[in-house]
Simulated scan of single mutants.
Amino acid sequence: MLSGVDLDRPFDRTPAANWREGIAGITVPPGHRYFTLIGAKGLSQVPPRMTGSLTAKPGGKGELIVHASYAVAYAFDARPDEARSPADIVPFVREEQDYVLRKAPPFAKADAGLSIGEGSGYTSRMACDAIKTGILAPQYADKGRPVVGVPVGDDAAAYDPTKPLPSLDTCG
């Protein structure tokens, strides 16, 4: 155990403690993904955990809007001097994203298929320097920021896809 962090159970004492592993945490309606680059800090052997849902509704003529509302928690490996708590090694990504499926006809073949619609997101417990370049890394990877533990105002609702998306993430 690493200063209160069990690296075999890194999600303990985080909002992801009871989430399911990987995409098993996403509820998809019967009959019916966010790509993140991982930086130099490697993921732990424990798979990421997810929670959320997909819903569908009609769009304009020939369109179907699929809304994804989900949160992902990633556990990173750490050396004893890099992390003091689960907050230091488990960053979160929360997304509210629409995907638009268009059918040809009425759309031209070039315009048919899947496209990304409106969306927004929230990140927490991240290395801010890395996330600005699209790379996911734990907060201890930021060279200029001290390891600070759980962000101020960090509560379970911020990670709950059934609640409103927070307006400000921990990287500002």
Rank of each mutant, 00 (worst) to 15 (best):
I38D: 10
D6G: 02
S120G: 12
G119A: 15
D129E: 15
T170Q: 10
T27Q: 03
R9L: 03
K163V: 11
E21P: 02
S167K: 13
Y99A: 06
A112N: 05
R9H: 08
A24D: 11
T123L: 15
A17E: 13
G172F: 11
C171G: 12
G60Q: 15
A78Q: 01
A130H: 04
S167G: 15
Y34K: 14
A127G: 13
G39C: 07
A141I: 00
T36L: 08
S53W: 05
P166S: 07
S167I: 06
P15N: 00
I38Y: 08
G31N: 13
L114R: 08
R33Y: 06
G119Q: 10
R13I: 00
E118C: 09
P58A: 14
A112Y: 09
A83G: 06
V93A: 09
Y99Q: 09
V93F: 06
A24T: 08
R9S: 07
P30V: 13
D169N: 14
A17W: 07
G52P: 02
V152K: 14
F35T: 13
D81Q: 14
G149M: 10
A130Y: 01
R79W: 07
N18H: 08
R125S: 08
H32F: 11
D6P: 00
K41H: 15
R79P: 00
A104Y: 09
T14L: 04
G42R: 10
A141H: 06
V100E: 05
P86A: 14
K103W: 13
H67T: 15
C128H: 09
V28M: 07
M126F: 01
G153Y: 02
D155R: 15
L168I: 12
L2Y: 04
M50P: 03
V100K: 06
G121P: 01
V147A: 12
R79T: 15
K41P: 06
D12H: 09
G121M: 06
G144I: 03
Y70T: 12
S85D: 02
G52C: 11
L168W: 07
G4N: 11
A73L: 01
D169T: 03
E21H: 11
D142R: 01
I65C: 04
R125L: 02
I131R: 11
G25Y: 02
P80N: 09
P146W: 02
E96L: 06
L7K: 03
E63T: 07
D111M: 09
F76E: 01
K103M: 05
G25W: 01
P86N: 09
P29I: 11
D12N: 10
A73P: 01
C171I: 13
V66H: 07
R145K: 14
L101M: 15
I38F: 07
S124H: 04
L64R: 09
H32G: 10
I131N: 15
M126S: 10
T123E: 09
K143C: 08
G134V: 05
Y34D: 14
P166T: 09
A157L: 06
G42T: 12
V93S: 14
Y122S: 09
A137M: 12
V5T: 11
P10S: 09
D6S: 01
P86H: 01
I38M: 12
A16Q: 10
P10L: 12
